[in-house]
């Protein structure tokens, strides 16, 4: 495996409410391509904010952040970066309820110039990968929590991202289903060599990763 850094963060700061809330207070972090890292810390410590910075959902106030070769603080068009390099998985309510499972997986592909046929083919491959091909015509509301998260994994993989960002992906699942989802993410990381960064406040969940980073009050306290 190569030793190239896919993420480099220097003195990154992010505050909210006119600087009164320091969500990130000088983060320094390097993550290598193909690593499986978990970010742990109590609620409100800044984990989601850090993940959102890596995924270019928001801009920092200060510091440097380079992801997959892009200098995010200097880039204007973050949408393209997101759609090509990042796959997000969230805790809950993240599928569109009125369209089918298959159509949900196709959603990120609109930004790539796929034909309808190619989109469908790719989405079906991904659903086969998460073993939900038989339920592709269902609406997300007809699926169990674990199945919905598997759809979310398929959708995150839609555009072949180099990094998967998961924010408490098992947070709303029972522990057995949660374990199954974690196994799936782990095998994805192992087989596809995709960089996986997972936010959690659960020690057991975090322990599955190769490396654990602990965040407290917007600072990394253990790396």
């Amino acid at each position: 495996m190569n030793n190239e850094n896919i993420i480099e963060i220097r003195e990154l700061k992010k505050s909210f409410e006119n600087g009164t809330i320091k969500a990130l207070d000088g983060i320094n972090l390097e993550i290598k391509r193909g690593e499986y890292v978990s970010i742990i810390g109590p609620s409100g410590s800044g984990k989601s904010t850090l993940l959102n910075m890596i995924g270019a959902l928001d801009r920092a106030n200060e510091g440097e952040i380079k992801v997959a070769g892009y200098d995010l603080s200097k880039m204007r068009d973050l949408n393209r970066f997101r759609s090509q390099e990042i796959g997000f998985i969230f805790q809950l309510h993240n599928l569109i309820p009125n369209i089918t499972v298959l159509e949900n997986v196709e959603i990120p592909m609109y930004e790539i110039n796929y034909s309808s046929k190619e989109m469908r083919k790719r989405a079906m491959e991904l659903l086969e990968y998460v073993e939900l091909l038989d339920k592709m015509k269902r609406k997300p509301t007809a699926l169990s929590g674990g199945e919905r998260q598997r759809v979310a994994i398929a959708r995150a993989l839609a555009n072949n991202p180099s990094i998967i960002l998961a924010d408490e992906p098992t947070g709303s699942l029972d522990s057995r289903t949660g374990q199954m989802i974690l196994q799936r993410l782990k095998s994805l990381h192992e087989k596809e060599n995709v960089t996986l960064i997972m936010v959690t406040h659960d020690m057991n969940v975090a322990s599955m990763a190769e490396r654990t980073i602990e965040v407290l009050d917007g600072k990394i306290v253990q790396n």
Partner: peptide, 16 residues
């Protein structure tokens, strides 16, 4: 609101 956030997270442009 949340759904629109998700759409942006998967790379949808403001224009879309």
């Amino acid at each position: 609101t949340r759904e629109i956030g998700v759409l942006k997270a998967v790379g949808w442009t403001n224009r879309r």
